[in-house]
Design a protein around this nucleic acid. Sequence first.
DNA 1: CGTGAATTTGAAACAAATCAATTGGTGTGG
DNA 2: CCACACCAATTGATTTGTTTCAAATTCACG
Lengths: 261, 261
Amino acid sequence: MEPQLSVMQSGGTMTTHAHPHGSHPLEGSTWSTMEHICALLHIHSISAASENCLFQHMQCKPGQRVHGIGQALDTLYIVNAGFLKTVLGEHSGHKRVLSFPMKGDVLGVDGIDPGSHATETVALSECDLILLPFERLKSLGRANPDIETLVTRMMSRELAGRHALIDMLGTLSAEARLARFLVALSERHAELGYSGKRFNLRMTRQEIGSYLGLTLETVSRTLSVFNDMELTTVRQRSVEINNPKALRTLCRLPPLPPPAR
Amino acid sequence: MEPQLSVMQSGGTMTTHAHPHGSHPLEGSTWSTMEHICALLHIHSISAASENCLFQHMQCKPGQRVHGIGQALDTLYIVNAGFLKTVLGEHSGHKRVLSFPMKGDVLGVDGIDPGSHATETVALSECDLILLPFERLKSLGRANPDIETLVTRMMSRELAGRHALIDMLGTLSAEARLARFLVALSERHAELGYSGKRFNLRMTRQEIGSYLGLTLETVSRTLSVFNDMELTTVRQRSVEINNPKALRTLCRLPPLPPPAR
DNA sequence: CGTGAATTTGAAACAAATCAATTGGTGTGG
DNA sequence: CCACACCAATTGATTTGTTTCAAATTCACG
């Protein structure tokens, strides 16, 4: 698709981290240009005015919290590498996973209105994040309206993601939810240059269940069913998609499909 | 059995909507100031620069579609009066209701990124909407950054609303969902100066079910349960809240609250 | 090599969906 | 004005999918 990140020198500070398959050792770079950010977000590059403005990176270890609930919103983050989860606070009872951000996703846009985060974000793997200080973003926006557009589009995209989730939670069977989950993961991995056919889950069954509105047992069971049907080969955290087409079919509307029964 | 103690004068004109608090008699006025808009949105008024810029209104009849799915995004709308529904297209099978906007809510912010609407919005009653032409909003934003903030906050708020829905759909029982729905409606009505104790539903059981991720039968049944418990007196479209406190309690976490673990 | 967490699997309980029939309200035309 | 047709809403009986409870297995890690 697009020019993947150039090969960069891995530098001295190498930490042991299990990356997907062909890993991108971009530990070395600690600053990103606006151009790079736009590429990450798949947004047409912004007028050149902001050539010389750079954004700092930040590294996270698995389990580390990027931001917490109630915390003041001072920074947005763009995932440059790694896998995370965002969790919604206990409006009702226990926490719920809202998304599993990965490369190219944005963190923190909820909570702009209240001024403080409604969610928390936790790294599920070694992560590399780009920091977008919110105040700086705003002042940049005054000089260059395109940057405002950028924020707007990030939020709108976030909204679209929520819509997909709502649609799923309200309508679909457990099988369809899991199928969608796997297909989405697969496609996402493929987009990022990894294998879409074979990858590892970074999250527990519990977290998947929380995300999909199911119990961990149902997640496990349904995955086993997919295995039995030979659609997938899921063993613990490793996933292999054997029959993508059939899986995609399951994503549909098993509750009320066109063919009668 | 049921005490028909209601004093309701049935002969009223049910389609007319009286003004709450007699605050803004702008039936006649077809233009709104930025100040009025900020008041509607509960956002601190914006710097005076935009004194003389006015926004046109638009009236809708019940059933009328404000915008459709796939339609280019050229306008945002603020509800000045009336009740509507926003519906998500058939990503999977049939349509799903995403929200029931009323006075002070914003329509159309989804679809800013793709540039076209992902949802459609339909009036459920006589409506009065304020039009915010998107291009105009953007150019105003260049002159006055506060306006950009306004858009940002509108979107962030929308996002928060979706989070609440996601939380509900994934976690709560049918009773809790209906309880939340009624309580939210009640509070909203109260905020707008109407009675929070007694109001009319503008939507069908089907639409409520779609919104809450339930079937219309379950909605009807659950409402009947509330009636039997004497928490409410719901008869067709008319709602009376008899025991708000108990209702609020039901909103909690019926799946797993009493037993500690 | 043991310990504890994550996962798998089973059986029973339950909530909600589905199928189906009835009632209630509204509007139209005879 | 009443009778009919149509749509929304209620209620019942049954079925289904998912949760819950419980136990066994696998894996990661010190």
